[in-house]
Design a protein around this nucleic acid. Sequence first.
DNA 1: TGTAAGTATATTGTGCACAACTGAATTAAC
DNA 2: GTTAATTCAGTTGTGCACAATATACTTACA
Lengths: 150, 150
Amino acid sequence: MTTEKDSNPLSLDNQICFSLYSAANAMVRAYRPLLNKLDLTYPQYLTMLVLWEHEGISVKTLGDKLHLDSGTLTPLLKRLEGKGLISRGRSEKDERVRVLHITPEGESLRESAMEIPELMRCKVGTPTQSLVQLKSLCDQVYHELAVEKS
Amino acid sequence: MTTEKDSNPLSLDNQICFSLYSAANAMVRAYRPLLNKLDLTYPQYLTMLVLWEHEGISVKTLGDKLHLDSGTLTPLLKRLEGKGLISRGRSEKDERVRVLHITPEGESLRESAMEIPELMRCKVGTPTQSLVQLKSLCDQVYHELAVEKS
DNA sequence: TGTAAGTATATTGTGCACAACTGAATTAAC
DNA sequence: GTTAATTCAGTTGTGCACAATATACTTACA
């Protein structure tokens, strides 16, 4: 038997995007108490992840990796600079580009951050295999929505 | 062979949550051009979906359905009221609760909204079966992260 | 060489998302 | 029945996310 609720395309229960949106919000909420100990927000944490792996990159390159633009990143990076975790230099070759560096304080924060993935993993009982599948599906959807822009 | 990149827990490529976060952002971005025609944002659209299905509910009930709190909803609802799509009355039984109603303008917007799910579906080439799976995994993760609060 | 096109970052303004808090109204305890 | 605890909505302040725009710098090319 098919009820109206099942077939109504405007029913919230049938909206895949709402599930995605709610799960992402819940995920950021779940990170918050862990990241508070590092005095970082989730986007700031992501930024530090990239900078720990790629020293001296530009705002543009960072934005490409995080899928965020300068309107979001510039104030975020200023806040990280204000906390003394990064420095925002200028490229000598090209005066337009900012070159982002980790400070010693930023580098030392890396150790505390090491335990975050494991702590976060404990909050979700979902089997690893399902999470890998979730990641794969999210990446797939992202690329189909992002490529379409061209 | 296992490279450092594969095993580093702080590598962005290994972060399931980053994929979830990026996919959700991309999804909201993809809705934007469609919703601009209705002069709605994505959270406003979600709110209208709920109110089209459940006339006369409270801010609390709406928040429970959308997983959002009054700090987010109060200004959003004022904007919807400002556009003439809803009215924000008071319950007669309990003076604390706001009772949300759809106006005729809000009701007429429903027809234009009917085509949104189909248009959105066209933007994603992912097979329906995969999307159903994605929804199921997102719901699972949401509940595990949300229940844990108690 | 001058100028046009393109690129990198920054600014402004809007709208969430949420924590922390306030105040008013309701309910429960005594 | 008054006090205490709870509940609902709203306010304030911070930090994204993004569109639109501005500005400075670089490159191409006429």
